[in-house]
Lab assay of single mutants.
Amino acid sequence: MTEYKLVVVGAGGVGKSALTIQLIQNHFVDEYDPTIEDSYRKQVVIDGETCLLDILDTAGQEEYSAMRDQYMRTGEGFLCVFAINNTKSFEDIHHYREQIKRVKDSEDVPMVLVGNKCDLPSRTVDTKQAQDLARSYGIPFIETSAKTRQGVDDAFYTLVREIRKHKEKMSKDGKKKKKKSKTKCVIM
Rank of each mutant, 00 (worst) to 15 (best):
D126S: 07
Y137H: 08
G75W: 02
K176W: 05
D108R: 07
K16W: 00
M188H: 15
R41F: 02
K177T: 07
V103E: 15
S145T: 08
G151W: 11
R135P: 03
M170S: 14
G12W: 11
H27Y: 15
S136E: 08
K16S: 05
K178R: 08
V160F: 06
E162D: 07
M188S: 12
E63S: 07
Q25K: 03
Q131A: 06
T74P: 12
L56R: 01
F141V: 10
K117H: 15
M111K: 01
V186S: 14
C51I: 11
Y71N: 14
K16I: 00
H27R: 02
E62V: 04
K172A: 07
D54Q: 01
K179E: 14
V186E: 14
Y64C: 13
E98C: 04
Q22K: 12
D108Y: 07
I163G: 01
E162I: 09
Y32T: 01
L53Y: 11
E63M: 03
I55Y: 01
I21S: 02
S106Q: 12
V14M: 13
S17Y: 01
K180M: 07
V152S: 13
H166T: 11
K128W: 04
G138L: 02
K178E: 07
G15D: 03
D92Y: 04
T2Y: 14
N26V: 03
G77Q: 02
A83E: 15
Y137S: 11
A11L: 14
K128L: 05
Q61Y: 07
K175H: 11
P140W: 00
Q22C: 04
K104F: 15
A59K: 01
S89R: 13
K16P: 01
Q61E: 12
I84D: 15
I187A: 15
K184W: 01
L79H: 01
L19F: 12
V9P: 04
H166E: 05
H94T: 13
V109I: 11
Y64N: 15
Q25V: 15
R135E: 12
T74C: 10
L159N: 01
R102K: 15
K128E: 06
R68Q: 14
L19R: 00
K117A: 14
F78E: 00
A130V: 08
D54A: 01
D105L: 13
E98A: 03
M67H: 06
